[in-house]
Design a protein around this nucleic acid. Structure first.
Length: 156
DNA sequence: GCCAACGTTGGC
DNA sequence: GCCAACGTTGGC
């Protein structure tokens, strides 16, 4: 089992929205970055764990945990001319973009902020702690995952 | 709202 | 294949 971190802008889709989806979960469509796609298509398995990160908001940081509930399959929004993420260069015989689905597992009692992640030697290797990183899906180690869960439950 | 960093595009 | 220009991300 692997661990991942997914960024999402809470104005678009938050951990609370994920929880509201219940067992149906949410399709992670619209990813149009090759590195992020490769992680989903090649490395992600059902049952993998996802840290949920809120970006572009008042309190940026890790807010909870999800689980990969469906392995990668073609992202149909790439073929929909009306969709925001339409890609005219991909065709149905040779899908270019893929998505997974995730379900909600847990909302942390508090946010583990980006500032904390950057300041913690155990977490400072994480991609999100590095300057200029824009990748929306990144791998996380078990040690990092465990440490973040511990921090999330610690009173500050 | 600003702007640094990054990925992608396209001219050559 | 190089690289400048452009668009986007995302912290601050």
């Amino acid at each position: 089992m692997k661990y991942w971190l997914f960024k999402s802008e809470p104005d678009e889709f938050s951990i609370h929205d994920l929880k509201a989806r219940g067992k149906k979960g949410e399709s992670w469509d619209g990813v149009r970055n090759y590195q992020a796609r490769n992680f989903m298509r090649d490395d992600m398995k059902k049952g993998d764990i996802a840290l949920f990160y809120h970006s572009n908001c008042d309190e940026t940081g890790i807010v909870g945990v999800g689980e990969i509930s469906r392995e990668s399959h073609p992202d149909h929004t790439a073929w929909d001319p009306k969709d925001k993420h339409f890609d005219p260069k991909t065709d149905k015989d040779n899908p270019r973009w893929f998505m997974i689905a995730m379900t909600h597992k847990e909302t942390f009692p508090r946010t583990v902020t980006l500032a904390e992640v950057k300041a913690d030697p155990k977490l400072s290797e994480m991609r999100i702690a590095q300057r200029g990183n824009r990748l929306s899906i990144t791998p996380v180690t078990k040690a990092e995952f465990d440490h973040i869960c511990k921090l999330a439950k610690k009173k500050v």
